[in-house]
């Protein structure tokens, strides 16, 4: 178990080093930042001075080492566009994305697992087929289209919910939250649905097919033969046995919710990391892009690690096999 954990941590470090190299590579290969930063009226002296200040005149390996050292300390340099430290900009934007991701993630999990279990148990009923058919829409419609449709129906036609922005936010020690104001919560609804709908339908379909598989097993039959209640059979005996594949997919999807909130944030002009990234791409703001890339990879690596650990918590058989190897 401990050996497994150490092995996985080492693997994670390797992954992060590779991503770090790619992020660092952007500085080298996507244009010369000095040209972007200094205007037309520049002198050779200015250029040399800036190169020296940014450390661009040193060997590549040294630059990479410096980049990594700073990155580990949370220092990703200065934004070319805004002239402020990248870490400050990200810290300012992160709450918006994290709150949005948390709400859609919880929504996707709760409704996805709930509907998956229900449609598996009552698979003959007409509404179960109706949900399954509707879920195809969720899986196949692109996110931006869902967002635009929601805005059209609920903001333009019905005028119930705002179509963009975060509403009023309250600052709690550097963390701006939209949970505490009514406008913040109403502003959250549409983006959260847009972002979570695909994950929800995906989780639902996986839970359903896994449930159908598990419900055929002998131990479910034996549980029935012992006169256990349906609720216990479905949720205690069956659902737990579906969780390993469900967690694998869900874990990756949770990563995607944060990483690919770009589209949703653009559609709803949500002032989060995704919107920051899109703007950074438009202005070739490489430090911001590099920091975003690193941040997302750290996120994915940690989620994968958590997923692997959850396997052990769920399936006792894995501990035995792990001990043997």
């Amino acid at each position: 178990m401990l050996a497994f954990l150490i092995r996985r941590l080492l693997q994670s470090v390797v992954v992060l080093l590779v991503v770090g190299a790619v992020s660092f590579g952007m500085f080298r290969f996507i244009g010369d930042p000095v040209n972007n930063m200094l205007g037309q009226e520049r002198t050779q002296a200015d250029i040399a001075e800036l190169r020296d200040r940014l450390g661009l005149d040193r060997p590549v390996v040294v630059q990479y080492a410096v980049f990594l050292r700073n990155a580990v300390q949370g220092d990703f340099g200065t934004s070319y566009r805004q002239g402020r430290p990248v870490s400050d900009i990200i810290a300012e934007r992160a709450p918006a994305t994290l709150e949005l991701a948390a709400v859609s993630g919880v929504m996707a999990l709760v409704f996805g697992i709930g509907l998956g279990v229900i449609t598996a148990i009552k698979r003959q009923s007409w509404w179960s087929s109706a949900i399954m058919t509707l879920s195809l829409v969720g899986v196949s419609l692109p996110t931006f289209l869902i967002g635009i449709l929601l805005i059209y129906v609920f903001s333009v036609q019905l005028e119930w919910l705002p179509s963009f922005g975060r509403g009023e936010t309250v600052s709690l020690g550097g963390w701006t939250t939209g949970f505490l104001t009514q406008s913040g919560i109403t502003a959250l609804i549409l983006p959260a649905i847009t972002l979570g709908l695909y994950q929800m339908t995906l989780i639902m379909r996986i839970v359903r097919s896994e449930m159908l598989e598990v419900l055929r097993q002998d131990y479910i039959r034996f549980a029935r033969a012992r006169g256990l209640r349906d609720r216990s059979i479905n949720f205690r005996h069956a659902l737990k046995n579906t969780l390993v594949p469900v967690i694998t997919v869900t874990g990756l999807q949770m990563g995607s919710i944060i990483a690919f909130s770009i589209i949703t944030e653009t559609v709803f002009q949500w002032p989060g990391l995704g919107l920051l990234f899109i703007n950074a791409v438009q202005f070739v703001d490489i430090p911001v892009m590099a920091a975003y890339l690193m941040l997302i990879s750290v996120l994915f690596v940690s989620i994968n690690l958590v997923v692997d650990l959850l396997y052990f918590a769920i399936d006792p058989r894995l501990s035995v096999e792990g001990a043997k190897t």
């Binding site: 097993q217 002998d218 131990y219 034996f222 012992r226 006169g227 737990k240 046995n241």
Partner: peptide, 18 residues
């Protein structure tokens, strides 16, 4: 379970592994 108990064929699959 209370009045009729049942034993199945394959003990390897009759018990919930988790």
């Amino acid at each position: 379970g209370r009045q009729i108990g049942m034993v199945f064929q394959d003990p390897l699959t009759s018990l919930n592994p988790l």
